[in-house]
Design a protein around this nucleic acid. Structure first.
Lengths: 334, 334
DNA sequence: GCCGGTCGTCGAAGCGCTTCGACACTCTCT
DNA sequence: AGAGAGTGTCGAAGCGCTTCGACGACCGGC
């Protein structure tokens, strides 16, 4: 059992200074002589002092906690989502903040609650839908927020994401360069499109525009996540489009199944069918063959979201929209 | 932009009572007349009052936040982990608590920090290893904690988990009843065993003991998560054990690949090979064919962990060890 | 040698809440 | 009728921290 909790005034007494001096040593908000600082820091570690979070929040009106709103909806690929989440936590710690986890079951009430009670200073929201119920609430909140993803009407909000439109287009471009003339996009499960999740839609748009620009033939289909469904989708696709020679897969859960299905249907990758994925790097690398891919930079997006929200917290103005440029890595599948 | 924040004294003034009366209405710690309570509650909703979390934490020495320590280590199946995590968040809200998310990158320092600063009242730890570095720290902390999973030396700790030993045994028993005489366990990736993660080891032990008890032949192997590795493992297994007729799979990520591999190797399930999985219910149901399984009751485990930690917070004594009994659901794969 | 400026430190006033003791009532029992 | 035991409410004292204004001490410039 640890000793009873040490307060700032005990540190002050131990160091022979005023309480406020200790506070200023810790915050650096006033100049303190090197000598005094040393004594204070020594006392702090001698006594094992940790500032009380509640007291600090009360006095400073800053909790040093941000909320991460993570709905975990059907059809979302949880491991990818968690990479974003994990990046947010790590980045928040860099700014000396902790992360409060909010899921969907309270709906918007949870967001309102943690904001109104000053439990959190700011919010980062994930899995944003085009018509997201959380968006109107964010506009009326005093606390700054950042969305990972874009709603249909992003005016007045701060959003960050990979530029999925460009990602879709880059895939098409790459396949066009390789001489493919008829290609297909296998996207997210249909439930994700139905819900109007921005990233899925924007990839498809980017794909379709680029297909037209390059004078290719192209079809975009949703894609479910069980092997049997993927197999059927791929089989039908090959039947309907016999000269199809390139596949863009934007669905982490289905990537492995698509490759397995092609194998069962006697299509060799990349010889008979070029495959390019939009997914985190390690998923592409672990596949066999390793996939040419546009990587989803989860760590970078999470870090950027936190940086933006911290900037807003400090009163700096930030761009409404931050789109990270997709990078294409060529591997053995195209 | 929301109005500036409302305090308890404004509520008191509006309702014509003392600040302490408002506090007692909210906490229920003293009797308040029905009439006064009504007026106070009316004022609260009229003004849109939310108690300030920092002030409350400072005065009451309770933050109403629990920490969820979630390392996200290699080889762990993230979707399953997140079901536990999600259950913990939901259950915590039932007790009027929020959840602070801690990942691994700070190591034990993060745990020490949030506990010492009174940011959290209690901790729930996931992904527990047999020789977990966090365990000694927990023993010296004043804050109560609960582990989801068991370390090698659980004395003095509160742990909750599915009884994986029994789960492994139940699978064997079920296959024995069906008349299978030579069976195999495909477990977690080898890195998980190397790390000494309890659930993997305990399932294997339960499997091995039950195999001996029923006089069967049985072999237990780790199992990686890419299709190619799974395929090789299964192929070699069939070569080495030609009369093998039953398979226990304790690896959510590999389940689909095992079924695909068997299909490619021309083994029909359940006709040529009975397959039983240890996994959450929906994974078993979505497989084709739907798998007989011992379900991992993630929601129940999460809920139980929170219930235990709340009991400890209230000073009630709780059992050191809570093992949930595994339930077997028979489907089409055995 | 005096004035105006930093520099370094202190004391005290809160921040918004919980909780303790006090107190005025209203009910029982005798 | 008076003691004793609740009820329901209030005021005030913190909880541990940040921050503001004040104030010596010391500096250089004239």
């Amino acid at each position: 059992m640890s000793r009873r909790t040490v307060t700032i005034s005990e540190v002050a007494k131990h160091a022979g200074v005023a309480v406020s001096t200790v506070s200023y040593v810790l915050s650096g908000k006033r100049t303190i002589s090197a000598d005094t600082r040393r004594r204070v820091l020594d006392s702090i570690s001698a006594l094992g002092y940790h500032p009380n979070a509640g007291a600090r929040a009360l006095a400073s009106k800053r909790s040093n906690v941000i909320a991460l709103v993570l709905p975990l909806r059907a059809g979302m690929h949880v491991p990818v989502l968690m990479r974003f989440a994990s990046a947010v936590v790590t980045a928040a710690r860099r700014f000396d903040h902790d992360v409060l986890l909010l899921t969907a079951d309270e709906g918007t009430a949870g967001i309102r609650r943690v904001a109104a009670s000053a439990l959190v200073d700011a919010l980062v929201l994930m899995d944003v839908e085009l018509d997201d119920r959380r968006v109107p609430l964010l506009r009326e909140l005093a606390e700054p927020s950042v969305l990972i993803g874009f709603p249909a009407e992003p005016a007045g909000l701060t959003c960050v994401d990979l530029d999925f439109g460009v990602a879709g287009a880059r895939c098409v471009e790459h396949l066009a360069e390789r001489g493919h003339e008829e290609i297909a996009l296998l996207g997210a499960p249909s439930v994700v499109y139905d819900r109007g999740t921005g990233f899925a839609t924007r990839t498809r748009e980017g794909f379709e525009i680029a297909v037209a620009d390059h004078g290719l033939k192209g079809v975009a289909l949703p894609c479910e996540e069980t092997f049997d469904e993927v197999y059927e989708t791929v089989r039908d696709l090959l039947l309907d489009h016999p000269s199809l020679s390139g596949l863009v897969v934007h669905n982490e859960a289905a990537v492995g199944h698509v490759l397995a299905a092609l194998r069962q249907l006697d299509r060799r990758v990349p010889h008979d069918m070029a495959v390019i994925a939009i997914c985190p790097d390690d998923v592409a690398e672990r596949a066999s063959p390793p996939l040419t891919s546009v990587l989803i930079p989860a760590e970078e997006v999470g870090r950027e979201a936190v940086r933006l929200v911290m900037d807003k917290l400090e009163g700096r103005t930030v761009p409404d929209s931050t789109l990270l440029t997709p990078l294409l890595a060529v591997r053995s599948s195209t």
